[in-house]
Design a binder for these strands. Structure first.
Lengths: 218, 218
DNA sequence: GCATTTTCCTAGTGGTCGCTACAGAAAAGA
DNA sequence: TCTTTTCTGTAGCGACCACTAGGAAAATGC
């Protein structure tokens, strides 16, 4: 339906030098920077959610016409999917990094919660987590389901990390990994909601400290 | 703007006996039960949120015409406000009751979290909490702010109850009532999100148990 | 009976939604 | 230069949004 030329997502910096002529590409060159426009769309979706962000909102903040938007990103839904992917890379990766880089599940969760307090209240951008909020009350079921799977997948990753520590003997064998992982996920989601409701970084950090007290003593 | 006749909210069961003629009221009697219609609207708003529930959705589930809806409830926003109030009475009162009826803040929060697990996964109605989710990503700022104030007010009530126990010597004097109250609020919000994401009553009860472990020993 | 009051149904209002047809503009290749 | 390719701006598509005018219908008061 949409005349998507291939290779757009490879992002080979076609608009980085607007006038010098992107060699090999025929036709009129794009007049805007695709990555910058995507970032603007990301911020809009992050702040207002999928459905409350209209295409005309998007064209305004991205400073392009609607046909340019559709030619560069496909329809609204595929733009949102790309935004979610970009969000995962640029803003939503602290949890996975914490789990991967810290030596224990407990340390990983500790760092995850502490960094969430910082990330969810960072100045100059919307508070809270796009994945948690942007598809709430969405009448397009597939969009809502897509982010739900992402959230549940993140909790499953925490559970796997805890399980690994149980197997390794770092955590007691009777540890309920699923419940502990869900607790971490629920805390993250509660912290994100709190950030949206006006809680400060310091207040979220206090939340993280309290939540960490439930872990078995090390 | 709207020709709201007075006394509609008193709900004097005017439509309970449709044909017998509500004595004293002139004009054609209402052909539907106002309380039943309100309950249908409540369920729709609860499930889909304020903005994703259109007026035509409402007229369908309430089984009335649009003019009847506007005559009986005012515009969409005032209907939603009435729904929120009704929700607070019928479904959202367990927290306040727990705080008021239990002898200690700790016992109140314990009961609140345990009952939240049951309420947020009750069969036959939407999961999670309307106050937490129904105005997410709402482009009508006043609606979003209204529910936000309700959420923050609930947390403030928990804080007051904890403070009272600190003053009474039931809790240690160095208790951080604000942080403990916010932790309870964040847990409730996380549990509600988990319920929306498919968590079962048993899983939410396990969350509640874990969250209660952070309280000072009694 | 008849006038009055209130509600209900039909059929719209203007506005915004996501999306696109079309023609002109700006580049590359021949 | 001329053709081809691709992008951009205008202008508008049908569908849905919240909401309502107008008149018929159904009750009461007289």
């Amino acid at each position: 339906m949409h005349s998507m030329v291939s290779g757009e997502k490879s992002g080979q910096a076609e608009a980085s030098t607007p006038k010098v002529a992107a060699r090999g590409r025929r036709g009129r060159p794009r007049s805007f920077d695709r990555a910058t426009a995507l970032e603007k769309a990301l911020m809009a979706f992050w702040e207002h959610g999928y459905e409350a962000t209209s295409v005309s909102d998007l064209t305004r903040v991205m400073d392009i016409g609607a046909p340019s938007l559709y030619a560069a990103f496909g329809d609204k839904r595929s733009l949102f999917e790309e935004v979610v992917q970009e969000y995962g890379v640029r803003y939503g990766s602290f949890g996975g990094r914490a789990l991967a880089e810290e030596p224990t599940a407990r340390a990983g969760v500790e760092r995850m919660l502490r960094e969430a307090a910082v990330e969810y209240t960072a100045p100059g951008r919307p508070h809270g987590c796009l994945v948690i909020h942007a598809a709430a009350n969405c009448s397009t079921a597939e969009v809502e389901e897509s982010l739900r799977e992402r959230r549940n997948g993140n909790i499953a990753a925490i559970e796997d990390r805890i399980d690994a520590d149980v197997v390794a003997g770092v955590l007691p064998p009777d540890t309920d990994a699923a419940a502990l992982a869900r607790h971490t996920g629920a805390m993250i989601q509660g912290m994100s909601q709190q950030a949206r409701d006006g809680a400060s970084r310091v207040e979220l950090e206090a939340l993280a400290e309290i939540a960490l007290a439930v872990w078995p003593r090390v």
